Amino acid sequence: MTVIDLAEFGPEFNADPYPFYDRMRARGPVHEVCDRAGNRFWLIVGHTEAKKALTDPRFSKSAETVGMTLLDEEVIGRHMLGLDPPDHTRLRRLVAREFTVRRMDALRPRIEDVADGLLDGMAAEPGCRADLVGAFAFPLPITVICELLGVPTADRDRFRDWSNEVVAPTGPDTEKAAVHGLAAYLDALIEDKRRSAADDLLSALLRTSDEDGDRLSATELRAMAYLLLVAGHETTVNLISNGVRALLTHPDQLDSLRADFGLLDGAIEEMLRYDGPVETATYRFTREPVPLGGTVIPAGRAVLVGLAAGDRDPGKYPDPDRFDIRRDPAGHLAFGHGIHFCLGAPLARLEARIALRSLLERFPGLALDPDPSGAPLDWLPGLLMRGVRRLPVRW
Rank of each mutant, 00 (worst) to 15 (best):
E8P: 04
F9M: 06
F9D: 00
P11Q: 00
R25F: 14
A26M: 05
A26E: 12
G38T: 05
L43D: 07
A50G: 10
A63S: 14
A63D: 13
D72R: 15
D72V: 15
M80F: 07
H88W: 07
R97C: 03
R97M: 12
E98H: 02
R103F: 12
D105F: 09
E112Q: 13
M122C: 11
M122F: 07
M122Y: 10
A123K: 10
G127R: 07
C128G: 04
A130I: 10
L140H: 10
L149S: 06
K176D: 06
A178Q: 04
H180L: 09
G181W: 07
Y185S: 02
A188G: 05
D200E: 08
S203W: 03
L205A: 04
R215H: 11
L227C: 03
N238P: 06
G243Y: 11
L247G: 01
L254S: 07
S256H: 07
R258Q: 11
D260V: 09
L264N: 06
I268N: 04
M271S: 04
A281Y: 09
R287T: 07
L292Y: 07
G294N: 11
G310P: 13
P320A: 09
H337K: 02
G344P: 00
L350I: 13
S358M: 04
L359T: 13
A367R: 14
W379F: 14
